[in-house]
Design a protein around this nucleic acid. Structure first.
Lengths: 248, 248
DNA sequence: TATAAAGCAACACGTAACGTGCTGCTCAAG
DNA sequence: CTTGAGCAGCACGTTACGTGTTGCTTTATA
């Protein structure tokens, strides 16, 4: 026979918790002293161990009561329910993580809090992601859509993201450079390399994306680039072309 | 200017929620009618949108208040904290899922609730898994330990698990068969095939595992097999050897 | 313009699983 | 017999609201 204090130390749960389990009728002491002290038997200890095991498995105290009373009946059912709950929670955490990473990188790139972008990122994960891509449907086919969707922050290495951030940041800081200058050319070349390392040599995809970029000019999917950056890149490309013409 | 009902419909949150946000000083209406009705301005709507965004990102209302007041200061820090929390929660769910799957299969194999096994499974995931493997340290080297550890229910296909359950179940139902009988031989052959498909042709690992099995006779890692099953397999092997001897 | 219907404020209590703190009691050791 | 530790029983706090009530205000309809 254990007093509540001994049982508490023995099992690692607090006295208050045992109080509470008594209150809700989950574990009640088999006997009491004359003075009213609760005395727990070995059976009670066993029941406590089972309760703690079920608690570890994620069941509520209410469910635990049911499970322990219905004995063998609903075990498998309860476990399957629990597993489904876990799955859903895992999915929730997954999108939550992506959202947070997206917002984190957005702040790093912008250097400040841009609520429009934060809303876009959240919407992107809240609703079905396809809806977010709808505006791009005119420019990308379904295969390309899939490739672009798969390219989110969670699937990029930290290294890649940092490089990407740097490249865009550099350009945003130098939007008023002479498009024909060496530095401007180098910045756009860095950008080209980065894009190529992300999307490979799929010329068609790159062309279609560029089409979408030029026509939409805003949008979350190609987020770190905005209108100014795109126009800068265009200017540099045109300057380069001009140069080539003059050379020949 | 919106009344609380319009704002509620507009934003998708309940009136009670807006009540509550007022109570804790998170979102308070800019003005009121003569009769005392709360009137929310566009600024209030904006603030609500931001609150909802931060809520979606997993922050508590208390944290949201701080974040919205400290403006740009602690954003990155808060996000990193949040990400760490998520990571921990994901790990918790991962082990929880493994525990539940383990218990589920245990019940399926045993056909009843065996609390000792449930406790073992939970302990296996609660403490560091290496500790659970300690008893096997005398028989398996570190490489082998790793291979055995990687072989848990989560890494097995459902098909494999079902087969494994059937094989063991069949044996448990036929422990008193004549070890020399055709059926006994077939059962052990099924078992052999199953073991081979799980651990491949690594003869050394198989031998070491068999050594551990014979000497420990109980233990969670090789769980579905118990003393009786192992002794049955031994008897059948011996009977087979005897047979081969007689043949020559 | 009178009245009915809908909307609203303010409040209270409930949720899950305890933590924290209190008063007045009981038990075990010296 | 006393002292101190342990205990029972109670109350209130926690988070983010849901649910329900009463008495008031506004809007819609006749």
């Amino acid at each position: 026979m254990y007093t509540i204090g001994k049982l508490s130390k023995n099992s690692g749960v607090t006295v208050r918790t045992l109080d509470y389990y008594g209150e809700i009728g989950l574990i009640e002491p088999t006997s009491k002293t004359e003075g009213g002290y609760r005395l727990y038997s070995e059976d009670d200890v066993m029941r406590l161990e089972r309760v703690l095991a079920l608690k570890y498995m994620g069941f509520s105290l209410e469910q635990i009561k049911e499970i322990l009373e219905d004995s063998t009946s609903t075990w498998q059912e309860s476990i399957q329910q629990q597993l489904e709950l876990i799955k859903k929670e895992q999915e929730r955490l997954e999108t939550l993580e992506k959202s947070l990473l997206g917002v984190s990188y957005a702040i790093e790139i912008e250097g400040e809090i841009n609520w429009q972008i934060i809303f876009s990122i959240i919407k992107m994960y809240q609703q079905h992601p396809e809806e977010t891509l709808n505006p791009y449907a005119d420019y990308l086919n379904s295969q390309e859509m899939k490739r672009v969707m798969d390219m989110n922050v969670k699937n990029m290495s930290e290294e890649d993201i940092k490089k990407w951030i740097n490249v865009i940041h550099d350009m945003k800081d130098n939007l008023d450079l002479d498009p024909a200058s060496e530095k401007a050319q180098r910045l756009v070349e860095d950008w080209s390399n980065q894009v190529e390392s992300m999307f490979g040599n799929d010329e068609e995809l790159l062309l279609d994306m560029w089409g979408a970029l030029q026509n939409l000019k805003e949008g979350i999917v190609f987020y770190p680039m905005n209108k100014e950056v795109i126009q800068f890149i265009e200017r540099v490309f045109m300057a380069k072309e001009e140069e080539l013409k003059n050379d020949t």
